[in-house]
Write a protein that binds this DNA or RNA. Structure first.
Ligand SMILES: [Mn+2]
Ligand SMILES: [Mn+2]
Ligand SMILES: [Zn+2]
Ligand SMILES: [Zn+2]
Lengths: 144, 144
DNA sequence: TTTCATGTTTGTAATCATTACAAATTAAAT
DNA sequence: ATTTAATTTGTAATGATTACAAACATGAAA
């Protein structure tokens, strides 16, 4: 609880109650949650919490590099407390987003430029069927 | 003109006038245009063209793998007639999206899976300052 | 040629995530 | 206690996309 307060202070963010709640939620839910998901759970614990505050806070965190925005599904932004450059996998069946560890020279920020353009951010993700959904599929086929 | 008609027929799409116009536009404008951009230019040539048709057609093309959707900017979808797996670069200054050729094992679809998940699509892009904007910056500094 | 069926296009209304805005609240400073 | 600035909150506006139903075109049967 102390360290997450320090985390904000280090980045020059005043650690208000709402902000700490949201940050704590992000640390506890590493599944790349949406604004909706964050709000829905927090509003139970903190009934005064407003969705606008969630939006404001996530934008602030994003600007101050406390979190990363992930735009994969096209419909809504998801948030990742893990700010180290890493890639993602979106399952087309169940919609889950996984972290994946790939040996890509760009994932590790080894390059500063491509084709003369200066790289500041690297974004990589895959779409397909996740491990879990694959085994489900297999079991269904056997059952038949 | 003939070959783009055949392009649609091959994929089982009836080559209507509107669809051919949109496909032709995509072939002629390889800058990853938006719905707005496509519509604005086509409506001059084809005054009856409706924005809904542009949406419908692009979705159809996307489903039939005539084009690819690119979601990078967060606000709007962009379209790419180049369906070979390749990566992109978004300039934070001027907003242009470039094709980039990277030697990434995943860009070339050499892998069919990561961490047990079955890969069907690979998406990779960078954000930063493009070559053009970099030289502009340098010239401004010299001028001072 | 008329009739009918099917697919396509079009305009408008609805949706939904996000942003803008201004009032209300809180915290800090004098 | 008063003043000031920052934060939170609810509501309204925005903007891209989708849903929907009427209008239109096409082409085969009658
Ligand atoms: Mn992640
Ligand atoms: Mn491209
Ligand atoms: Zn899955
Ligand atoms: Zn640029």
């Amino acid at each position: 609880m102390k360290h997450i307060k320090g985390e904000l202070e280090q980045k020059g963010i005043k650690p208000t109650y709402q902000r700490l709640c949201i940050l704590e939620y992000l640390h506890a839910h590493l599944v790349h949650p949406t604004v909706e998901g964050i709000y829905d759970e927090l509003v139970d614990r903190v009934p005064t919490m407003s969705k606008t505050t969630v939006y404001n806070t996530l934008r602030l965190f994003s600007e101050k590099d406390v979190i990363n925005e992930i735009r994969i599904t096209g419909t809504e932004v998801r948030y990742d407390i893990n700010c180290q450059s890493h890639h993602h996998f979106l399952c087309k069946k169940c919609g889950k987003i996984y972290d994946v560890d790939v040996t890509c020279p760009f994932a590790n920020m080894e390059h500063k430029e491509v084709s003369g353009h200066e790289i500041q951010e690297v974004h990589g993700y895959f779409k397909g069927i996740c491990k879990e959904c694959l085994t489900k599929q297999n079991n269904e086929q056997k059952g038949r």
